[in-house]
Write a protein that binds this DNA or RNA. Structure first.
Length: 461
RNA sequence: GGCAGGGUGGCUCAGUGGUACGGCGGAGGACUGCAAAUCCUUUAUUCGCGAGUUCGAUUCUCGCCCCUGCCUCCA
């Protein structure tokens, strides 16, 4: 069974065939680093992390590039509000980003280029666009892209220039030949950070950096370009226009877009102000719960964020950890590593069908049940356990120590263990009143006891 | 207005031309001194509404209703 992916460019699922048989070049639009990441950002990172992992599992050598936009109007504004240099701000936010995304279990991409480190690439591409008459210097001195010069403008978003203009909310700007023309190089005002260019001191427009950085790392033509649905227009449309017009080649071949995170059926976004940062959420929930929550919905569907949804994700994850916990002392050595032969076909088929993590999870839970059953029956579980671990590793959940998962936090372990021992004695003496009193007291403080033939264990709820 | 994507049980979320996956929650049972955990059984005669195609549609076609998103920065 081979991999098929939904290509936004053609609005249909297509068989995935990379340019080179064993290699995949993938570019994902990262974040503008002026503030902490919210759950919407978390979704992109987790979604493409899973895609990255699955492509790797399929045997592809994946060159995964994800950028940082570290210069733009919002960054300049925020830095000036805080009275710091933009680099101080962006370094701080990049560090926070790495921490947040790392906590979600995302593997680092192959490259994480920063826009400010690619000025020559951008200047070169803009120069090419000017030379080919796809760009012009406006009366304000900014370099603009002439959308009418690119025949295929609108191919990704399925729009045509005239439709866009009829319903456009864009302010008409006299310096533009067409209202949809967008800036490639923005002239610096006094005091603003600036870089040299043939058109004067300034900074790049937002869209050019991704065209330049993706081409510079992956070549003019590469396999996958991804990002949030909201980037489809105008950002990705403009990227295509820039890249294709400057190198007369094609650009990314498969465009993958993930759906939004919603709150109360409304998109979570900075502009609406209805967002939760990753760090806010992980104050109350383990980051892996957030990952589980994201994996529970197919990446192209909207994802409704709420405490009850996180609670449900946590309950499901707890169930997996309960099983993991039963392996205490059992070795699975040499069988934990990913191996296609270990993965149930249902899981593989689900992942090969446009990365359907929801269905893959269903397969995982089936294995979970089979495993618990086998454990109950004291049967040999080595194969099931290896399958279970392989699937967990591919989704990057269940990655923590099961005991720590249930017992973590600020609890007095010694005291609890002492009480459990005391209850054990009471049970032996058939003083159930005393035993139950101890258990009830612990429940009152959020500690649940679980008896088993091999002894009593506990967990925090 | 243009374009795109949706409406599946109490909640959530997959999916298929032959009456529907998984998770959460609920109910019953096994296990247990009782629980918890686990396992078993069960929880939509039904997939927004209407019509059409078909032996048969939730799945295909058409119409309608409703929701969301993009068209400005946005993951």
């Amino acid at each position: 069974m081979s991999l098929s992916v939904y290509n936004s460019l053609h609005r249909r699922k297509e068989l995935f065939e990379p340019l080179e048989p064993n290699r995949v070049g993938m570019y994902v639009c990262g974040v503008t680093v002026y503030d902490y990441c919210h759950v919407g950002h978390a979704r992109v990172m987790v979604v493409f992390d899973v895609i990255h992992r699955w492509l790797t599992e399929l045997g592809f050598d994946v060159n995964y590039v994800r950028n940082f936009t570290d210069v733009d109007d919002k960054i300049i504004k925020r830095a000036s509000e805080r009275g710091i240099d933009i680099h101080q701000l962006t370094n701080e936010m990049i560090a926070a980003f790495q921490e947040d995304i790392g906590s979600l279990g995302c593997l680092p991409p192959s490259h994480e280029p920063r826009a400010t480190a690619h000025m020559p690439d951008m200047v070169k591409m803009i120069g090419e666009l000017v030379a080919r008459k796809h760009a012009y210097v406006s009366s304000s001195g900014d370099v603009l892209y002439a959308v009418r010069s690119f025949d295929h403008y609108g191919q990704l978003s399925g729009k045509n220039i005239d439709d866009l203009e009829s319903g456009s909310r864009v302010d008409v700007d006299d310096s533009k030949r067409d209202p949809l023309d967008f800036v490639l190089w923005k002239m610096a005002k006094p005091g603003e950070p600036a870089w040299d260019s043939p058109w004067g001191q300034g900074r790049p427009g937002w869209h050019i950096e991704c065209s330049a950085m993706s081409c510079s790392h992956l070549g003019n033509t590469f396999d996958i370009h991804g990002g949030g649905m909201d980037l489809k227009f105008p950002h990705h449309e403009n990227e295509i226009a820039q890249a294709c017009a400057s190198n007369d080649g094609s650009f990314a071949r498969y465009w993958l877009h993930n759906g939004f995170v919603n709150i109360n059926a409304e998109k979570m976004s900075k502009s609406l102000g209805n967002f939760f940062t990753i760090r806010e959420v992980t104050k109350n929930y383990h980051p892996e719960v957030l990952r589980m929550f994201i994996l529970g919905t197919h990446y192209r569907s909207p994802l409704d964020f709420s405490d009850s949804a996180l609670d449900a994700a946590k309950a499901g994850l707890d169930r997996l950890y309960e099983t993991l916990r039963r392996f205490k002392g059992e070795t699975l050595d040499g069988r934990c590593e990913m191996s296609e032969s270990l993965i149930p076909p249902a899981f593989t088929n689900a992942m090969n069908d446009d990365f359907n993590t929801t269905e893959a999870l269903a397969s995982l839970f089936d294995t979970n049940r089979a495993l618990n059953k086998a454990l109950n029956e004291r049967a040999d579980v080595s194969d099931l356990a290896a399958q279970f671990k392989a699937m967990l590793n591919l989704l990057a959940i269940g990655q923590h120590d099961a005991e720590a998962w249930f017992k973590g936090g600020d609890v007095d372990v010694a005291r609890i263990e002492a009480l459990i021992a005391e209850r054990g004695e009471s049970k032996k003496a058939r003083d159930f009143a005393r035993a139950d009193a101890i258990r009830d007291a612990l429940i009152a403080e959020g500690i649940v006891l679980e008896d088993s033939p091999s002894g009593t264990t506990w967990k925090k709820v």
